[in-house]
Design a protein around this nucleic acid. Structure first.
Lengths: 246, 246
DNA sequence: GGTACAAGTAACTATCTCGTACATAAATCG
DNA sequence: CGATTTATGTACGAGATAGTTACTTGTACC
C-alpha cells in the first residue's frame, strides 16, 4: 500500500536539486525575513544525514544506533531519513558505501611508478597509514560490518570495484621489486595489503581495549611518527629479507 | 492462574526432565544414577548460558543480541540469566571477562626462557597466532568492546592483571635479544605485542569484509601455515634488521 | 500570482525487548 | 521429616523503537 511519496530513496536525488539555487542560504531574497531559512537543498540535507549517521553507527553499532537519535542530531527530521534512505538499513548501507568510496578514490589517485620499488612500497604503506589515521569512522564502520558478516557490503553494487585499486598498485610494485631481485617471492599483493591493513586497522579499531589494558594510546599524536616509520620498516624488512636464499 | 501447571505434563517434554515423571527417564529406578543428567547443576547452567551468550554477542553485537534469543538457545530460561547475571550488561561483561581469562592463562603458562631470543620470539608469535585461530569468538567480543570504547572492560576487576603477562614475556625476550646484539633498539615490548596482535586480530576480525572484497578467506586452513610463518618471519626480520647500523 | 510538489512536522502504532512478580521443584539442613 | 535455601519455570508488563501517516509550509516554475 502506501502511496510512498516516490521519494528519491533508491539512489541519488534525481537531477532535480534545482541547481541554480546557487549560493548557500543567505542570498535568497525570498522576501521572508524569517529565520526560517528553510531551503531546498537536497544534497546538503542528504550529506548531513549521512555524516551524523556515520558517526552514530560507528559509535553505537548498527543495532545500537537509534534512528530517532540520528534525526535529532541533524537539522532535519526522521521523516527525511526515510524519504531519502527508506529504512535504517538503507541509511547504514549508504554510510558504509560512502566510507568505502573514500579509500577507493584515495588508492586510485596514487601514482608510484616513478619511485623505485622500495620507496614505492613505503609510500603505499604510509598513505594507507595516513588515511586510516584521518578516517577513524571508516575503520569503525568496517568493524561493525564485519560483525554482521559483511552481509550489507556483499550486496553493494560498488563491491566489484573495491578490490582492483589496492591489488593493482601493490602487485605492480611487487613485480618490479622481484625483477630487481629485491623482494621475496613467497608473498603476493593481497598478503602485503593484509599486513598493511592489519597494522593500520588495529591502531584505530582496538584503540580502546589496548589503552584500557596497557595504558598506551595508539593514536597519540606523539607516537604517530614512530608507528608510521615502524610500519614502513616492517614491510620493507620483511619483503627484502633473505632474498635469494629461502 | 490459568493452566496451573498441574504437574510436569503441562508443556514441553523435551527439556523438562523433571525427576522421574518425564516419559523417557521413567524407566530408571527412582532417583538413581545416571538417567537424570540435568537436575540442579548451577555451574553447568551458568557455563552453558555463558557459552551461548558469548556466541550471540560475538555474532550480533551487544545491542543486537537478544536476551530472549540467548535464553531460547540454552536449555534453561531467561529467568536464570537474570538470576545469575542480573542484567544483559552483566551477562555481557561476564562473557567478556571469561574470554580474556583464556588468553591470560595462556600467556602465563608460556615458558620460553630456554629458547634463544629469536626462537623465543617466534614461539610467542605463533602461540598468539594459534590462540587467535582457535578462539574467534574472543576476538569478536574484543571488537565489540572497542565499539563501546572499552567501557565495560575498564570497570572489570580483572583489568589490572591483563597487562603484565604479555608485556613481561615479550620484554624479557627483547632484553635478551638486545644484549646479544640481535634485536633493534627502537621498539619496546608493547610495540611488538601490538604488531603480533594486529596481524592475528585482523585475520579474524576483518575476515568477512576481506573475503567479500578480495575473495580470499583469511581463515582458510590451507593458508594457515603460510600466515603463521609469515607472522614469524615478519617479526623476526623486523627485529633483527639493520642492527648496529641504524 | 497561483499551483504542483518537495521539504518538514508531529503524533501514532504495532512490535519488540528487557526485566520482574509470582510460582515451583530440588537440594540442604536441623 | 519439615523448614529453609537454592535453583528453575511461566507469564506478563512498562518502555522503547522502527516505521507510517495525515497534515503543514515553503519553493520553484509557469
Amino acid at each position: 500500500m502506501s502511496e510512498q511519496p516516490s521519494g528519491p530513496v533508491g539512489g541519488r536525488v534525481g537531477g532535480r536539486v534545482s541547481g541554480q539555487v546557487g549560493g548557500q542560504v543567505g542570498g535568497q531574497v525570498g522576501g521572508q525575513v524569517g529565520a526560517v531559512e528553510r531551503q531546498r537543498d537536497a544534497e546538503r540535507t542528504r550529506a548531513e544525514i549521512l555524516d551524523i549517521a556515520t558517526a552514530e553507527f560507528a559509535d553505537q553499532g548498527y543495532a545500537g544506533a537509534r534512528v530517532d537519535e540520528i534525526a535529532a542530531r541533524t537539522r532535519t527530521t526522521k521523516r527525511m531519513i526515510y524519504y531519502y534512505f527508506g529504512s535504517k538499513e538503507g541509511l547504514y548501507v549508504a554510510a558504509l558505501e560512502r566510507a568505502y568510496q573514500g579509500i577507493r578514490s584515495l588508492e586510485q589517485q596514487l601514482d608510484v611508478d616513478h619511485l623505485d620499488p622500495a620507496r614505492a612500497m613505503r609510500a603505499v604503506a604510509e598513505l594507507t597509514f595516513d588515511h586510516h589515521e584521518s578516517h577513524p569512522a571508516f575503520i569503525r564502520l568496517v568493524s561493525i560490518e564485519n560483525i554482521h558478516h559483511a552481509d550489507h557490503l556483499r550486496t553493494s553494487p560498488m563491491l566489484p570495484g573495491l578490490a582492483a585499486p589496492a591489488v593493482d598498485v601493490l602487485g605492480g610494485i611487487l613485480e618490479r621489486g622481484r625483477r630487481a631481485g629485491l623482494f621475496r617471492e613467497d608473498v603476493d599483493a593481497l598478503d602485503v595489503h593484509m599486513l598493511i591493513s592489519a597494522f593500520c586497522v588495529f591502531r584505530t579499531a582496538n584503540r580502546h581495549t589496548f589503552q584500557a589494558i596497557f595504558e598506551r594510546d595508539l593514536l597519540d599524536p606523539a607516537r604517530r611518527d614512530h608507528y608510521r616509520r615502524m610500519l614502513g620498516d616492517l614491510v620493507l624488512e620483511y619483503l627484502t629479507a633473505h632474498v635469494g636464499r629461502a
